[in-house]
C-alpha cells in the first residue's frame, strides 16, 4: 500500500521511491476509488510515470461546465451528474477552484452544493486546485480526465472555477462546453466580450425561477445569431428546482463533435502544453533574472528557450 507520507513528499517534489502507477491504475480499473484517487494525486503533482500510464484512454465523453462566479455551476453539475448516473452512465466530476497565489492553499467548496451526487456512491467526485497554473485551469487536467476514463468513467464533468473574461482553456480540454449564465444582464455582456459565448456548445440560463431569465435567454439568442454559432441551443434551467434539467440532459446527449472547433481546440491544447513545458524548463529562473538585469532581450530569451535544454 502506498503511504500518505510518501505521496506528500511526492507532491512537493522531493525525490522518492518510484511509485507503482501501473498497479494503481489496475486497482482503479477494478473499482478501487482510493487507488484512482492516488493516481490522480500523482498525475497532478507532475509524476511522469503516472502521466505516461494514462495515455490512450478508452472512449468517454467530457463536458466542461463554465460561467461566471455564483451562477449555479455546482448545483447544476450536481443535477447533471445524478441524471447521467440514473441513465446508467459511469459519472466522474472534477471541480476546479483557485489556489491562493500568496499561501498556495485552496478552499475547495464546490462539493458543498453537491448533495445528490454526494449521496450517490456510483459517482466519483474530485476537487482540484489550480496550484501553480497561470490561468484558471490546473496543469495536467487532461491527463486527470484520461485517468478517469481508464477507470471506466464514460461521462466526465469538469466544473471550472468561476471565470473572468479570458477563460477559454476549458474548450481545449473538454469534448463539449456548457456555458452557464444567470438572469443578470451584466454577466451576459461579460460572456460576449470574452468570446466564450462563441465557443460554447450549449448555453444555459440558470436560476430561471428568478425574474429576468427569459429576457436574458432572448438576449443571448440574439447575441448568438450574429456569430457563426447561431445553432447553439439556449436553455432555461432552474438547477435549484430541477426544472429544465431533463431537456438539458437530452441536448447534451445529442451533441456531436464539430470539425471547425476541433482545430481550434488543438491549437489551444498545443499552447497549453507549450506553456507547461516552458514553466518546467530548468533555464527559466536564470532567464527571468537575466531579463530583469537587462542582459538579454525578450526575443533572445524566447530563442534560448526554444533550443533543446542540454544544448
Amino acid at each position: 500500500m502506498v503511504h500518505h507520507a510518501v505521496l506528500e513528499r511526492a507532491a512537493i517534489g522531493v525525490g522518492v521511491d518510484r511509485l507503482d502507477s501501473i498497479s494503481l491504475l489496475n486497482e482503479a480499473k477494478n473499482g478501487s476509488r482510493r487507488s484512482l484517487a492516488r493516481l490522480l494525486s500523482l498525475i497532478q503533482s507532475g509524476d511522469t510515470t503516472a502521466i505516461d500510464t494514462v495515455q490512450n484512454p478508452p472512449a468517454s465523453r467530457s463536458l466542461g461546465i463554465t460561467g461566471p462566479p455564483g451562477v449555479g455551476k455546482s448545483v447544476l453539475t450536481d443535477r447533471l451528474a445524478s441524471a447521467f448516473s440514473d441513465r446508467g452512465q459511469r459519472v466522474a466530476v472534477l471541480c476546479i477552484d483557485p489556489s491562493s497565489p500568496v499561501s498556495g492553499g485552496s478552499l475547495l467548496g464546490d462539493r458543498m452544493r453537491m448533495e445528490e451526487s454526494g449521496a450517490d456512491e456510483r459517482i466519483y467526485v474530485r476537487s482540484v486546485a489550480t496550484r501553480d497554473a497561470v490561468g484558471s485551469l490546473p496543469f495536467r487536467l487532461s491527463a486527470m480526465a484520461d485517468a478517469l476514463a481508464h477507470a471506466g468513467h464514460d461521462r466526465i464533468l469538469i466544473e471550472t472555477a468561476g471565470v473572468g473574461q479570458t477563460e477559454l482553456g476549458i474548450v481545449s480540454i473538454a469534448d463539449h462546453v456548457l456555458l452557464v449564465e444567470g438572469p443578470e444582464r451584466g454577466d451576459i455582456v461579460q460572456a460576449e466580450k470574452a468570446g466564450i459565448l462563441e465557443m460554447a456548445d450549449v448555453v444555459v440560463v440558470n436560476k430561471s425561477d428568478l425574474p429576468g431569465a427569459e429576457q436574458a435567454a432572448s438576449d443571448l439568442r440574439s447575441g448568438l445569431e450574429f456569430g457563426r454559432a447561431s445553432t447553439v441551443p439556449v436553455l432555461l434551467v432552474s438547477a435549484l428546482n430541477h426544472t429544465g434539467v431533463v431537456d438539458l440532459v437530452e441536448t447534451i446527449e445529442n451533441l456531436i463533435p464539430s470539425d471547425t472547433v476541433s482545430s481550434m481546440r488543438w491549437r489551444l491544447r498545443l499552447l497549453e502544453s507549450l506553456q507547461q513545458t516552458v514553466l518546467s524548463d530548468n533555464r527559466l529562473e536564470d532567464l527571468v533574472r537575466r531579463l530583469g538585469d537587462g542582459e538579454v532581450s525578450l526575443q533572445q530569451a524566447v530563442q534560448e528557450l526554444l533550443q533543446p535544454e542540454d544544448a
Binding site: S99, S103, G104, G105, S106, L107, L108, G109, R111, M112, R113, M114, E115, G118, S127, A129
Partner: peptide
Amino acid sequence: AGHEVIYTG
C-alpha cells in the same frame, strides 16, 4: 496556512 481544504458542506 497553505493547505488544500475540501469543505463538505
